[in-house]
């Protein structure tokens, strides 16, 4: 999974803008109204590089709500719901892939 800093912005399919919330680092997604949500279902989904660049630029304007914004792939499931588009994003949404110590 190329880290977002290394990724060239090529958009093949649906993408969203994601970041980490400043106060607690939680994974958030860019929503309508220039907001952020911890729920991927709220994310604005775009499908072209131009739209993605515009969405990212707007998200990066203000770095006090969320930090490290980048464009992440998503997939639209058969029922219309949105899911993360690669392993890295699946882990960001669902947590580590093994049982945590307890």
């Amino acid at each position: 999974m190329a880290s977002p800093q290394q990724q060239k912005l090529k958009v093949h399919g649906p993408v969203a803008v994601t970041a980490n919330r400043l106060t607690d680092g939680a994974v958030v997604w860019r929503t309508r109204g220039d907001g952020w949500s911890a729920d991927l279902a709220d994310a604005i989904i775009v499908t072209t590089a131009d739209d993605a660049i515009a969405l990212l630029a707007a998200a990066q304007k203000r770095d006090i709500d969320a930090v490290g914004a980048y464009v992440a792939p998503v997939v639209i499931e058969a029922d219309g719901s949105v899911a993360p588009g690669n392993l890295r994003e699946r882990i960001r949404v669902a947590g580590p892939t093994f049982e945590l110590p307890h």
Binding site: M1, A2, S3, G68, L87, R88, I91, P96, T97, F98
Partner: peptide
């Protein structure tokens, strides 16, 4: 590894397990 780290390309812990 990729289970936690923003720099990682692949998982390490499950491989070790």
């Amino acid at each position: 590894g990729l289970d936690y780290c923003a720099l990682a390309n692949a998982r390490a812990i499950p491989v070790a397990q």
